[in-house]
Design a binder for these strands. Structure first.
Lengths: 226, 226
DNA sequence: TAGTCATGTGACCTGCTGGTCATATGACCA
DNA sequence: TGGTCATATGACCAGCAGGTCACATGACTA
């Protein structure tokens, strides 16, 4: 049992919830404010009122705290999605994707600070595409790949579709929308209300339709091409 | 004349070209390898064989070297484009955009290391979207905005198009393609040859067609929408 | 009571950072 | 020759980073 590998030490989980949250929030604020590289453990301990020694009794290092936060968000998200169901059982792949993106955005609005911290590091700072998160990245890529294969199987996409390309496109869009909405949303005073407004929803729809129509219409063009 | 504001000091330009290149290359390697935040002036001076004091006689600070490199790339690029002309005078907006992207990619292949350094900092690390480069960013945004307005005027895009949205889409794509091609290209042994290969060109075409068809087809959808 | 053990602490370590400055060099000129 | 001036140098500075460790605390146990 020595190889729990990472993700916060047992001592951290023995702490009273209140203290755990204090530390987690200080870390969230730090990452949201400074990104990964520039964030400082010294500031995290100062802002959470614990000592440096304690910090290292809870976490291996900076990456360990960050991965702990990623774990928190993953758990919260899967819990959130358990209580959610698509509006219909007969959605096509793109309708399902659209529903998923929107539900994801709702989740983001519920945890704006945490999401901001994570996505600042992963997307803006670009760590998502580095080796530290290759594993997470692959999971997401695999999920999208499956969706696309399903879409081809269902006849929603031309079988000549370039799957790698389609994956990159969908991933790029998911991240671009997420970044865009988060940036705009952080300017609002009631992010959840703003997120649910017809105007915002329409904006997201437009983004996704551009992607969807592009993917649907293009691929068969490329059998012959000089 | 006291307010040259930034962009390397006169002493730097008095240096023999050889030495200037040595320093510039060391800086390029440093930024390409470590990004902006994590790159170290100590390493730059060590690798270029100059002393720390000299560095500060050539540049104000780290940002100053970086902006100098951006200036180099901007000048090289405009020189490069002076010798280039679209294949025809009667390209529609999207054809023109496509031509421009491809010519840009070609330029990137000619200066892969420099482009890699700059785009690592601006795109991957995300500084492009921060306040330090707001000026550059706005220039690019304005250019794209003009192109889109032209496309609407020419009847190539539905007048109901959401211009802000279209700009974001085109910008996102430009950057995504650029990042993708650069990453793939750096794996090749002859990047220029790879760049010019039919397969790579086709990949770029596909990317751009997805964007173009998406933009062309979608917008009129949104007059009525529940 | 004495001992044990998980938890907490902050002074301290090394290593690096960006940045300064008194001094040295050497080309050019009066 | 002696003086001037742009350039070059690297020891040095303060600051902060991540990380360690000898010691303090206090609850629980025998």
């Amino acid at each position: 049992m020595t190889r729990r590998s990472h993700l916060a030490k047992q001592t951290f989980f023995n702490l009273p919830e209140e203290k755990r949250n204090l530390i987690a929030n200080a870390a969230i604020d730090e990452f949201a404010e400074y990104g990964f590289e520039a964030s400082s453990i010294n500031r995290i301990v100062a802002n959470s009122g614990i000592s440096k020694g304690s910090f290292y009794q809870y976490f291996e290092d900076k990456m360990d705290v960050f991965k702990y936060l990623m774990d928190v968000i993953a758990k919260e998200k899967s819990e959130y999605f358990l209580g959610k169901h698509p509006p219909s059982d007969h959605l096509d792949t793109f309708e399902y994707f659209r529903w998923m993106i929107k539900a994801g955005m709702e989740f983001n609005s519920a945890y704006p600070r945490l999401v901001q911290a994570i996505s600042r590091v992963l997307l803006v700072e670009g760590l998502y595409y580095g080796k530290d998160f290759a594993e997470y990245h692959k999971m997401s890529t695999d999920g999208i790949t499956m969706m696309i294969k399903q879409a081809v199987k269902n006849g929603e996409l031309d079988p000549s579709v370039d799957i790698d390309l389609a994956v990159i496109i969908m991933e790029t869009w998911t991240n671009a929308i997420s970044t865009y909405i988060l940036n705009e949303g952080m300017k609002q005073k009631d992010i959840m209300k703003w997120m649910r407004s017809a105007k915002t929803q329409e904006k997201i729809d437009k983004f996704l339709y551009v992607m969807e129509y592009g993917l649907r219409k293009t691929e068969s063009q490329f059998s012959t091409n000089s």
